[in-house]
Nucleic acid binder design. Sequence first.
DNA 1: AAAAGTACTTTGTTGTTCAAAGTTAAATAT
DNA 2: ATATTTAACTTTGAACAACAAAGTACTTTT
Lengths: 100, 100
Amino acid sequence: MKISLDQFDKAFENRIRLQIMSVLVANESYDFNSLKELLNLTDGNLASHLKALEKEEYIQVEKTFIGRKPNTRYLASEKGRSAFRLHLLALENLIKQQKL
Amino acid sequence: MKISLDQFDKAFENRIRLQIMSVLVANESYDFNSLKELLNLTDGNLASHLKALEKEEYIQVEKTFIGRKPNTRYLASEKGRSAFRLHLLALENLIKQQKL
DNA sequence: AAAAGTACTTTGTTGTTCAAAGTTAAATAT
DNA sequence: ATATTTAACTTTGAACAACAAAGTACTTTT
């Protein structure tokens, strides 16, 4: 019996990064504060998880202004999307195995 | 939009524990050395992850002899099985969200 | 001028993961 | 009889990850 978690991605092992990526793949962009509220995180903690995903080039950052307020938006990159897709496939396979 | 990872279980956040649990739920029991080979782990590392699952009462241990050699077998408990089921459901929901 | 908002960074503590080495006890080989 | 091996750990120590809280820089609102 083979346990196929080959495509399992360390960057998504953490629950919070899994959630962030899930949001960013489902919504073409999401800003810092909305993410912070949605996931109920301190800003420092959110920033560091975002940075980890940025380091992997799984997300991109866009700094703009809404009215006169700074607004930082995050987007899943193509690289991030496909890495995430593979990761979910790995999880899906694991789930499927359980159902046989 | 709600991100439903409510049933996400910290005990299964780690890749190795996820694999162990996956094996133990699919096979009614598995012994230490087979698990060690299957997952390619040092014995110390495997032992500590097994201990973590034992502490949660997600697995049970049975010490027997095969011939004259000691043989330690691990089994998923009912508690472990249902916790794992809920965890996989949480992941499944996450995956489903992506596909909408 | 003071307070508040945005988006961080820094600091320091705590937690997690791991390999490697050590342990115990029995079994087998020399 | 002694040495080596196997099984199944435990202990140690180091590296890394996660987190809250506090600090920062800059701007805007009051």
